[in-house]
Design a protein around this nucleic acid. Structure first.
Lengths: 253, 253
DNA sequence: TCTTCAATAATCGCATACAATACTGTTATT
DNA sequence: AATAACAGTATTGTATGCGATTATTGAAGA
């Protein structure tokens, strides 16, 4: 008995922090949090980069207090690493953590697929197809647009489930994937094959939950193998320098 | 007149913050966060309860700064609701949010089951069975122990996957389930049927991933129907009093 | 008696100030 | 020359203070 897909209550931007009613001033802590979040996801702040409180506060025009608050939240989401008395860095997931993220993401998105199968409204269906057409167009020019659109497709699907928590988790996993691909990804691999998106939509519309889930599973699996690469760099100065030390006959403790 | 401090969180001394081993200076912000988290999960702080920064800081022996920081993080995890200029409350999930949480949890734990199928070491297998025996024993006396143990079984499984993110999400979902059951749950339903746990272990050991996943799915499904109930109480004074008002012929706006 | 509204009290949002800790460059010791 | 000890500086951890916002109370008007 297919319920109709539930519309999601107005986009609360993220999390349970309610936006103030219209006209009310937005808490600046929230603004700082969002700014940093975007900067990290868009890789303006690269993985591993040091995040000094006062420098960032100054740049954003707020005090350290708010920056710290933002750090705390970002740490919960895994975008920032907090080390006691040593400040914050943009997270630098290990290859192992990367695999964990992808595995969880697969599980979550399979849930999305199952949830959506047979419940897409015509409007939603149309929206997805329009999106895929955009992807196709962007794919030809092979810019960074292509990558962004690929990601948005998955977010769109999660939104359509009407399950706010599921959406949050998918977004979170997706954010972390951005970090991961920035570290371990091939330079210009388009993450998603557009044709796979098309097939998926088809299965969803046909109401074939099992097939949709399998397609999603396979799709994300292939993203990993297409995009993931052997590690390019190391996070810790020690690890970076170890080979140099050895080649010069030095002995790191 | 200062509001009387209510029995808030346990004193910091019994919060299992890393103890002064090796002179590790654990930020007290972390301690506050954990204390509040536990207090909420253990329902010392009930859903919907107001969380004034001052009172809590005083009770915990820290300033409002640290309390605010903790609130921010708890809000990301969905345990606290933050309303701009109006402070924080313990989250009070709606019935719809509750369903969302359970759905996501099912998806996550299915992943756990699939991941673990055929991979349990003998030691892990034994540990799980020992745990189930504990559950059985507790079940006879039907205390609150029973509920705690049921939850821990699921956490243990998630731990065994070795996937840190998966563990975190399962824990988070689990925390929120505590809130949900505090609101909508039957008074003394033992959440999990012990026999279902046994079957699950069996399937995992046999390496039957599909069966394990299906069992987990079914298991959690039945938890919902066993434990979930129509709403018992309302969070807002207005809603609590509405029926009284009506019965007295008063007309709340 | 029921509303409207102003005064007051309580609480939050944020910056700043001070204390504690870690980093860096220099000097002393072997 | 290498290591150890130290001091100065930079950065983080936490408390406190002040203006802003919201809740509450009480009184005046209808």
């Amino acid at each position: 008995m297919p319920r109709p897909a539930r519309p999601l209550a107005a986009s609360k931007s993220n999390s349970n922090v309610r936006m103030p009613e219209k006209g009310a001033p937005v808490p600046r802590a929230q603004a700082v949090y969002k700014a940093l979040r975007r900067a990290i996801i868009e890789q303006a702040l690269k993985p591993g980069v040091k995040l000094p409180e006062d420098a960032i506060g100054e740049q954003l025009g707020v005090s350290r207090t708010l920056v710290r608050e933002a750090f705390g939240r970002l740490a919960v989401e895994g975008l920032v690493e907090l080390k006691p008395n040593r400040g914050a860095n943009v997270a630098y997931p290990t290859l192992e953590e990367a695999r964990d993220v992808f595995e969880v993401r697969r599980g979550l998105e399979r849930l999305v697929a199952e949830n959506l199968a047979g419940r897409l409204t015509p409007a939603q269906s149309a929206e997805l197809e329009a999106h895929v057409r955009l992807e196709e167009k962007a794919h030809e020019q092979d810019g960074p647009e292509s990558i962004r659109l690929s990601g948005e497709f998955h977010i769109k699907l999660a939104e359509m489930t009407g399950n706010a928590l599921l959406l949050r988790y998918v977004q979170e996993a997706s954010s972390r994937c951005s970090l991961i691909l920035a570290i371990y990804g091939r330079p210009h691999s388009s993450e998603c094959a557009v044709s796979e998106h098309r097939q998926l939509i088809e299965a969803l519309r046909a109401g074939d939950a099992a097939r949709a889930a399998a397609l999603m599973d396979h799709h994300l699996q292939s993203v990993v193998t297409r995009a993931l690469l052997a590690p390019r760099g190391e996070r810790d100065i020690r690890d970076v320098l170890a080979p140099y030390a050895l080649s010069e006959g030095l002995t790191p403790s």
